[in-house]
């Protein structure tokens, strides 16, 4: 049994927002909703990092715990999904979620909000796989087709990993062991640090 997980390699993420765009396009997400977003830590300071964040499909999901109408369920592969027919749009899951994953479409000019929408790990919802109803409510179901979430598959730097948690952790562990700790092998630190060193060397040579 697999447990599907996301992992964003902060050393590789270049904040291109390709994952955000891919998600919106693939699932035809309405205006005002971003199932995935890129956040920046230490903005403008040394050590700045970007991270792509969406629903993390928690093993012990707080959204499931607080939902008053029990509209959440977890598939056998650990993907947290919800039923929009049961959702009442109360917002408890948003308050409970540490990642701010639940989103609400604006349904009126007076702040009325509709049913909750969130990342489905490209696994749709409780409707029949790849049915029209599922597409309209939750977006495409790539998992049923044997495909991974598009955000991860489209990631240009392979910063965003998705899939069986065991494999994702293995890949990340390999990367960390290959590059050591600190700057990433394919990240900005690697790309520019060597150039800076060359420049410093040249500068030092000119002085001599």
């Amino acid at each position: 049994m697999a447990r599907m997980k996301f992992l964003c390699d902060a050393e590789r993420c270049i904040h291109c927002s390709g994952c955000v765009t891919a998600c919106k396009n693939e699932h035809e997400v309405p205006w005002g909703i971003n199932r995935r977003r890129v956040v920046t830590l230490n903005d403008g300071k040394p050590g700045q990092r970007s991270l792509s964040v969406a629903c993390m499909h928690c093993s012990d999901a707080p959204c499931m715990a607080v939902c008053p109408v029990d509209c959440f369920y977890q598939t056998g592969d650990g993907i947290v999904l919800h039923n929009k027919d049961l959702c009442i749009g109360c917002g408890y899951c948003l308050y409970a979620c540490p990642f701010g994953a639940p989103q609400y479409p604006s349904t009126s000019n007076f702040g009325g909000r509709g049913k909750m929408d969130k990342c489905t790990f490209c696994a749709g919802g409780p409707e029949a796989d790849n049915s029209k109803a599922e597409l309209e409510k939750y977006g495409r179901n790539r998992i049923a087709e044997g495909k991974l979430p598009l955000c991860a598959e489209m990631c240009a730097t392979k910063a965003l990993l998705a899939g069986d948690g065991d494999m994702v952790s293995t890949i990340y562990r390999e990367r960390v062991m290959a590059r050591g700790f600190g700057s990433g092998a394919a990240g900005w630190g690697h790309a520019y640090r060597d150039q800076e060193r060359t420049r410093e060397r040249k500068g030092a040579g000119a002085k001599e």
Binding site: M1, D70, C71, G76, D77, I79, D85, G163, D164
Partner: peptide
């Protein structure tokens, strides 16, 4: 409490073949 899912249908685990396909893609 986690609560029991109140809906009538829910997705189950993917098949072994699909799971293998997902592993091949990651």
């Amino acid at each position: 409490d986690k609560g029991g899912y109140a809906g009538t249908t829910a997705d189950q685990a993917v098949s072994d073949a699909t799971r293998e396909a997902l592993r091949q893609r990651v």
